[in-house]
Design a protein around this nucleic acid. Structure first.
Lengths: 217, 217
DNA sequence: TTTAATTTTTAGGTTTGCCTAAAAATATTT
DNA sequence: AAATATTTTTAGGCAAACCTAAAAATTAAA
């Protein structure tokens, strides 16, 4: 199995296991990777034999220590390249994912570490997601959803829970970006949408769906 | 055929056609790509059908305009990344080839162009090879081999004809790098090796083999 | 607790990009 | 121009990574 494909499976399993403690299900992995479940069954059997995941028929899979290391390294590479694309090449945060998705598979330890150094060993990527260090440790961040901020409370925007282009572009349009301060001016009783002010200026309504995908501290 | 594989074939054919005007032979392509001739036959048939090369059974192949464009774009990407690796990440010129060999296949036009801009639109890579511009035009360079410099003549080192690690490391050791000035102090009658002085200082003997792989102007 | 629905796996196929061995074509010698 | 050598192609195979359709196992519902 090519390391490119392998890394994608491990990354998907890592992501799903974050959400679902007992592991990643065949169907979910397939959905995540845009392939069919039958293909996933084949693949996870092999990953099991390679010692990268714990595989038992009909059960959710989990990563072994080795598999987890590889997944985290891939995430590290992905997020470092995202920083590069934004900080050095001037891309916007909604443009970088597909490029990072390819760059993350370039596998030279020395390249990754020099890139990190060149970027000033950043701890967060342009979406506010933590970048694991070379040993695989993530900076601890205890953020809350914007929906958890009480009326008249103020919070600093630190991240997002949804990474789709449309969501990112919408945040751009209303002026929400990392580090900005958000004050909750009103919570509409009817649908729990909220009126917020961005950096004490612009006021906009956010649906609960949007607010619940914005992370703050 | 994956663009990764396709680009490698086109690059190999481009390189071979540079050397051998009538085109690239099956055997040579196979040697260049470290695969077997039978595999090449299969591949070039497909590349022919795709309109990327001119293919006729038992004949050397040449690139079509389209095939040439893709080859040159790949070379552009390769050399830009090499500049990045040396100028920004501090790698040495003998370390970068394998990394650039992977980075070159990342195919986002916008990424390439922003990278080029970030690097200051360099015209030459760390080995002195010209970087084609976005339209595929190479800076014209009329360099000569160091073996063509006459006794007591001085020339500026501008490139190399051999890109092996061992050659690059040897040049490093004796202090030869791009831009350095070389004076021919002596040409040994017996084997045509030459005594040179590097930047008017250090004197070393170079075999004819080495001298013929050093380009100057 | 039996039936129904869902999920996972198996079985059998396809394409891609590689391989070896042998046949066919081309090129080189004698 | 024959014979020999070299090069290229054909033929048949293999593993990876995907697929569909059907069978088996598990989970949920009646």
């Amino acid at each position: 199995m090519s390391s490119h494909v392998e890394e994608n499976y491990l990354k998907a399993i890592y992501k799903l296991t974050e959400r679902n403690k007992d592991g990643a299900y065949t169907n979910d992995i397939a959905y995540e990777l845009n392939i069919k479940p039958a293909t996933v069954t084949e693949a996870i059997k092999k990953l099991g034999e390679k010692g990268l995941i714990h595989y038992e028929k009909y059960k959710a899979v989990t990563l072994t220590e080795l598999g987890k290391q590889i997944a985290i390294k891939t995430i590290r590479k992905h997020r470092l390249w995202e920083v590069f694309l934004v900080e050095k090449l001037g891309f916007k945060w909604d443009e970088i994912h597909p490029m990072a998705e390819e760059l993350e598979h370039i596998g030279f330890e020395e390249l990754t570490e020099r890139l990190a150094q060149f970027l000033g060993n950043p701890e967060f990527d342009p979406h506010g997601d933590p970048i694991p260090d070379r040993d695989g440790n993530f900076a601890k961040t205890k953020s809350i959803k914007l929906t958890g901020v009480s009326l008249n409370g103020t919070a600093v925007m630190t991240g997002i829970e949804n990474h789709t282009t449309s969501f990112l572009q919408h945040l751009d349009k209303i002026g929400i970006k990392l580090g900005i301060s958000i004050t909750v001016k009103e919570i509409v009783d009817f649908d729990k949408s909220m009126l917020i002010s961005v950096n004490g200026e612009k006021e906009v309504y956010l649906s609960q769906e949007i607010a619940s995908n914005i992370l703050c501290k």
